[in-house]
């Protein structure tokens, strides 16, 4: 925080030096121009006629959605059950695969740096690709159905759980690990006694958190044919049956709120 003297010799306080001030102006200018350029690209690709119509379209949509066709809810129990299964089984399989990957990826438990890079690669590819894209690929391979959904969720969960878990492993206290090694324990025993108890709370928390996210994600997998309530959503949208769509939305909303509540409770209990 520089203080300079004015021509009259009075001290003047400014927040930044002149140079820093200028740099900041330039940065803002660059940022804003970049934003405007991006905006230009988007507006060039937009049919503004439709956009002017958006308000009317929205109102129209709303009027078609209301009132919801409550009777339709009876058809939705089975797809909802499928959705829950996709999320839960997918999470379970994902965790089972993520667990060894995390140990291979953590700097302090990996057997070899090369193995570590391979494990990190698995984690990154799994994380970068959205579960919906995984589902799209798997539906072309396995055909439409719940199985593709489960595997898509599992594949996506590997990266998420693996990343958080290996960070937790890298943050453990090294001394208990040292102490267990000093007793003459084997590698696996050191993992079991020295590392595992330390990461268990983090592991449980991460798993429940991912399950909660997976519930959300599994509601839309049906849009690409991977089972669950998304199938019904897709069908209703294609039939322009918006009063059914609103019922589906309400069900999704309720399910997600419940799963979020459960996940928060469990994580709270663990910590």
């Amino acid at each position: 925080m520089p203080v300079s003297l004015t021509t009259q010799g009075l001290p003047v306080w400014k927040r930044r030096t002149t140079r820093a001030q200028w740099l900041q102006y330039v940065a803002w200018l660059l940022g804003i121009s970049l934003f405007l350029i991006c905006w230009k690209v988007i507006s060039d690709n937009t049919m503004w006629v439709f956009v002017e119509d958006a308000g009317r379209q929205g109102a129209d949509l709303l009027s078609r959605m209301l009132p919801p066709k409550w009777a339709y809810a009876n058809v939705l129990w089975k797809p909802m059950w499928d959705t829950l299964n996709i999320a839960t089984l997918g999470t379970v399989f994902g965790i089972m695969m993520a667990f060894p990957v995390a140990f291979l990826a953590a700097r302090n438990t990996t057997p070899h740096p090369l193995v570590r890079s391979a494990a990190l690669m698995v984690i990154v590819s799994s994380r970068s690709i959205n579960s919906l894209i995984w589902a799209m690929l798997l539906v072309t391979i396995l055909g439409p159905g719940v199985l593709a959904g489960i595997i898509a969720i599992a594949l996506r969960s590997i990266g998420f759980v693996g990343k958080l878990l290996y960070e937790a492993i890298e943050e453990i206290h090294p001394t208990p690990v040292e102490a267990i090694s000093a007793t003459g324990a084997s590698r696996m025993q050191v993992m079991n006694y020295g590392v595992l108890p330390q990461i268990m709370p983090a592991f449980a928390g991460i798993s429940v958190y991912r399950w909660d996210i997976n519930i959300r994600e599994s509601t839309v997998l049906g849009l690409v044919g991977a089972g669950g309530i998304g199938l019904q959503l897709n069908a209703s949208i294609n039939n322009l049956a918006w009063d059914q769509v609103s019922v589906i939305f309400i069900m999704i909303f309720a399910t997600v709120l419940v799963s979020e509540w459960i996940s928060a409770r469990v994580r709270h209990a663990i910590i």
């Binding site: 001394t175 208990p176 020295g194 330390q198 709370p201």
Partner: peptide, 8 residues
């Protein structure tokens, strides 16, 4: 620092 495994 005793180096016990706290959660066991």
């Amino acid at each position: 620092e005793y180096a016990l495994v706290d959660r066991l």
